[in-house]
Design a protein around this nucleic acid. Structure first.
Lengths: 92, 92
DNA sequence: TTGACATGCAAGGAATCACTTGCCTATAGT
DNA sequence: ACTATAGGCAAGTGATTCCTTGCATGTCAA
């Protein structure tokens, strides 16, 4: 999954928002925060699948700590977007 | 259609690429350029629908000139992305 | 006015995506 | 050892998405 498709889903964007606010969260922690942020409650598996997609896109790193799996944002793949289509304001 | 979903499709990204290179193209012009860029030939309607989505996302402005319709990029909606998830390099 | 060119509209089908359900593994605490 | 907690895997379903086909509109040239 490429970065653009990873960003296409509002739930995944909410996950990134939650992680930018508090980095290194577990799956369960993200479940409650994301369902609070949006007004729809998703199953744990739904969030888990979204996390896998974000990780595949390079927007997320994970770290196993005992029986917990912590998730950390990595926004570096987003730099490609600004480089590919530079923001050109016609009238300043 | 929001900006993120608009960027999710590779054909739409190719359209933006073609317009950044040469701005103000017609539908037919974009058809040949995009199908050359990707290695799949899409129908005129396919491109037209993609253009409508890009315009709805605010990434495109159009201008009728006689029987032609010219398309111009507007990358300003992309600034939201960088503002929403700032690029934080952990180790410089 | 007639024909050619540029584009628009709408319905249908195939593929993809998001979510759920059900079951399984692994780690930690008592 | 037993139980509870954190997470993983996989099949199935409903909803989108992308593209095509077919027809219609509008503009320009001869």
């Amino acid at each position: 999954m490429d970065v653009y498709k990873a960003l296409a889903d509002p739930t995944r964007r909410a996950i990134l928002d939650a992680l930018v606010e508090t980095d290194g969260q577990t799956l369960f922690s993200l479940c409650t925060k994301v369902t609070a942020r949006q007004e729809a409650d998703l199953s744990r598996q739904a969030i888990s699948q979204h996390l896998a997609i974000l990780e595949e896109a390079g927007l997320l790193r994970t770290e196993k700590r005992g029986r917990f799996k912590l998730h950390f944002v990595d926004t570096t793949p987003l730099t490609e977007i600004g480089r590919r289509w530079p923001v050109t304001r016609e009238e300043t």
